[in-house]
Simulated assay, not measured.
Amino acid sequence: MTATLATTARPAPLAVIYRDARLIAVAKPPGMLVHRTALARGETRFVMQTLRDQLGQHVYPVHRLDRPTGGILLFALDSEAAAALTRSFIEQQVTKRYLAVVRGWGPEAISIDAPLREEDGIRPKAEMPAQAALTHFRRLATAELPVAIDRYPQSRYSLMEARPETGRRHQIRRHLARCGHPIINDAKHGKGTHNRYFRDHLDCPHLLLSSVQLTLTHPFEGRRLTLEAAPDDHFSALLVRFGWQAHLTRNDAQWQTPGESMTPAEPSDALS
């Protein structure tokens, strides 16, 4: 009788976007928790632990991304750097840029200045004080699908750029839902019929929100750092499928001039 030894596959390493002696930035996969929490029932893989094992040293988180959000996540490699970077985020000295795919044709440009109550999943919302929250949005491109997902014969979607000035929990998701354009696969604020269509027919199984750029001043060297990362494979493939591949990378012209619609019609609220 022979025994078969079970082998445990080593977790895939995190993609490193930038690294120096004091800090490191990685691409966080959507759906992955940054660290262990009370909500981590059954989870076995976390960004902090994976990165620590990958580098063979401790890492210090300096900001956060919600579990379903993918993209750039910055860590310090020592406590002094952690304090300096955390201060940069608190003092709003870091510019953050996200891409999101939303339902309907979103506004060409809008700033949502709406306080939000913290959502920690433990305390009742009524006990949580509302905190200032400001996000700037710009529509980059639109698409119209000849599919009756909802009550209309066509279905419309937008690629939105989000620049949050504050860092409240679920801020971008809640602000987009507030203006009537929830992010695709946002189970709480979106609509199930659209979410299911993207999962079942467009190979998009997760929230279509990704942190694609961080710009900050290096706390010890004084130089400006611009960290960039394309969205994950599912998100990027959708951008190509919708003809939005120009927005996989950014330049100043794209920020100044939103992308053109895939259809000649002007956006309206009728299908949003």
Rank of each mutant, 00 (worst) to 15 (best):
D78V: 08
V94E: 05
P267I: 05
H170W: 06
L227H: 13
L77A: 09
R87D: 15
P124G: 08
H247S: 11
A132Y: 10
R168C: 02
R45D: 07
D20M: 12
V94T: 09
L159M: 09
A83H: 08
F137E: 00
V26L: 06
D252V: 13
Q92L: 11
L14W: 03
N185T: 02
L225Y: 08
G222N: 11
R19I: 08
D203F: 14
V212E: 01
P68T: 06
P153F: 05
M1D: 12
T257M: 13
P30I: 04
G180C: 07
A265W: 07
E221H: 13
L140Q: 01
A126N: 12
G180M: 09
P146V: 05
Q154M: 13
A141K: 00
M32A: 11
E127N: 11
T44F: 12
P258G: 07
M32L: 15
H189T: 07
R151H: 14
V212A: 02
M128E: 10
P153L: 06
H35I: 07
H175T: 01
L238Y: 01
R103L: 10
S79T: 14
L207H: 05
A143P: 02
P264V: 14
T7Y: 08
G71Y: 06
M32E: 07
E43T: 07
D186C: 03
P30S: 09
Q171V: 00
L73C: 10
L74F: 03
R196F: 11
R103F: 07
S272A: 14
D150W: 04
S210W: 03
R97M: 12
Q254M: 14
M48W: 04
S158R: 02
G104M: 04
L5G: 04
R139D: 02
P68D: 04
G259P: 04
H181K: 09
R156I: 06
T50Y: 03
D150F: 05
R196V: 13
Q256P: 02
E165A: 06
Y98I: 04
Q154L: 13
R163W: 05
H170S: 05
A100G: 04
S158K: 01
H136G: 02
T226R: 15
S211H: 12
M48N: 08
S79Y: 07
I172C: 10
R87P: 07
K28P: 00
T2F: 09
P30D: 07
L73I: 13
V26I: 11
H247G: 05
Q171R: 03
T7G: 07
L248F: 08
E119I: 10
A25G: 11
Y152I: 12
A246N: 13
A109C: 14
I17E: 11
R97E: 10
G190Q: 05
I112H: 04
R223F: 14
H136N: 08
G121C: 12
A187R: 15
R174P: 00
I183T: 02
Q93S: 10
F137S: 00
S111E: 12
S272T: 15
R250Q: 13
M160R: 01
N195L: 00
A230S: 14
A187L: 14
D200P: 03
L145D: 01
G180N: 09
E161F: 01
G192Q: 14
I122N: 01
V147Y: 08
W244I: 12
A177W: 01
G106K: 00
E127A: 15
C179Y: 07
K191F: 05
A270N: 15
G222H: 14
R223H: 15
A114P: 02
H247K: 06
N185G: 03
R173F: 03
E118N: 08
H189V: 06
